[in-house]
Design a protein around this nucleic acid. Structure first.
Lengths: 297, 297
DNA sequence: TTAATAGGTTCAAAATATTTGAACAATAAA
DNA sequence: TTTATTGTTCAAATATTTTGAACCTATTAA
């Protein structure tokens, strides 16, 4: 016998412990007491372990029984979650959804979107991966990511992958006056700026999510709680990053922040998203729909 | 139906995927193909999810089927581990064993013992808790710990708890010349020295253990890889700690290290261990036996 | 002390569930 | 085209689980 334990047996054990007696457990499970007795005996026999000892007219768990009960409960819970995840997948909602973002883009702009997503569907796990340069492309073909948000011009057309432009507010690459990068040759190369510390707005959706999504970053980062803080941190020269044009127009005019052009002229409004055409997942559809809207931020 | 998934069904699913076909899976499980077909259909029905799609003459997993397979495998493994843990408990080997150590004692001396334990029994989880002052006592009565290693004189006799002295090599509390503590009133109080950073030898058994045991410390610690390093760190004034007398005799004579008496005169050889007499676990017996030997370090 | 009660077990019969093997359909390979 | 492989269906055979009645046993109430 490969698996002497059965989920039904664990369920019986759990009911006995919760209800306090074989008889009460039988009642809860809509069975007759002798059926409970039989189930326990079978489990003890298959496992070759004594699980209950009679004390007075009650049966109490042995140490081995306790171990089986406690860890068994976790297995029951995992099974329940699995059943839900399977059904959800079948209904078109992916249980986990992976987003790859080109490393040149700040994660900032995706967080509000994820926050909104969790408001609607709190039990789906979302992971955000950072991909460098061409890696975002490959993340899709190798199934590492369900959705890629890339910068720059649309890549070479690829069979089975659909691309779509994302229009959003203008983000400007900014550094403090006197920052090292102001001395560098313009436009700045991606390799160059990726060596510096980026300032990002802390993932506000993290606390809100029941199972927190993970962010896998490859760069040194400084997390701040808000865009206002990010502007301050940038002005203090703590790092570099993109900022929404309308928030910093006056600072640029006063010379308190310096806007620098970045290689490939990536004014953020030309970034795109990509996904596999075979993927019909509903989470994917949700994100595509949201990202297609002009006002999503 | 509370649990539509059964372990048997997951096992069938796993075999189908590994062997590549229903027929091969049937062969592996010593059943007839129609039995496999039946099992899959039943699972699909109970779960109300399509798991296989026919492609040519083969059946391939749907996305939902893949989710069920992959997470199902983890459940199968967990169940297997649970069966082993239960049997082990029944045979007298505790699946987890908790040791509480008085915070005045260095963990150093217990690590080699744990290393030796893992050589014999690598699949038992051992946790080491630090307890301050009287906490070690209570750790036993409240079942937080299976074995307590305490310092100082034997505590008041307590029903159901057995105490035994531990004889071991002499450990001397040591600081660097010029250390702040050399100015303090002697003997040093425990409260006083516990405010300083302790230097401990890094837990060498950690890497060796398959499921690493955890150490829960409440003090600032500096971990070093060996006793030799510990002596060096102590001499440099990086922290304080106990050292084996025979290793530092010459350093004390040359004045390169200072020995300081500690309150309650705890020369380590008078420390004791304690456990519940009702506990007949074999791991406990092993540790008692080892700690009873004079030469255990 | 003696009922009465609650909890657990045993056993044969009944009800369910699973496995089998033979027949069949569909596809890929020879 | 033939052959081999794969999966399905179905009724019969087999195995497992549930049932209910009878029967212990230890506590509690009278």
């Amino acid at each position: 016998m490969k698996y002497p334990i059965t989920l039904d047996a664990l369920e019986v054990l759990d009911a006995i412990d919760r209800k306090g007696s074989f008889a009460a457990a039988a009642n809860e499970l809509f069975r007759v007491p002798s059926a409970i007795s039989y189930a326990v005996q079978k489990l003890e026999q298959d496992l070759d372990v004594v699980l209950f000892r009679k004390e007075g007219r009650k049966a109490v768990l042995t140490p081995a029984g306790k171990v089986l009960l406690e860890q068994g409960r976790e297995i029951l819970q995992a099974t329940e979650r699995l059943a839900m995840a399977t059904k959800k997948t079948h209904s078109g909602w992916e249980p986990v959804f992976n987003i790859a973002i080109d490393s040149i883009l700040d994660f900032d702009f995706i967080y509000p979107l994820i926050a909104r997503f969790y408001e609607v569907l709190p039990d789906i796990e979302i992971n955000i991966y950072e991909e460098v340069l061409g890696g975002a492309q490959e993340a899709i073909t190798s199934n590492r990511a369900d959705l890629v948000i890339g910068a720059g011009t649309e890549p070479t057309p690829n069979q089975g992958i659909k691309y779509q432009k994302i229009r959003q507010i203008e983000w400007i690459f900014t550094v403090a006056p006197g920052h090292q990068l102001t001395q560098a040759a313009l436009p700045l190369s991606r390799q160059l700026i990726e060596q510096h510390r980026f300032i990002v707005v802390r993932d506000s959706s993290r606390n809100q999510a029941p199972q927190s999504h993970r962010v896998f970053s490859k760069r040194p980062l400084l997390s701040v709680p808000s865009v206002a803080e990010k502007i301050n941190a940038l002005r203090s020269g703590l790092g570099i990053g993109f900022l929404p044009a309308h928030r910093i127009q006056h600072l640029l005019e006063q010379g308190l922040l310096i806007a620098l052009p970045v290689e490939n002229a990536i004014p953020m409004e030309t970034c795109h998203m990509a996904w596999k055409t075979t993927n019909k997942g509903k989470v994917l559809c949700w994100f595509i729909e949201q990202l297609s809207r002009h006002d999503f931020i």
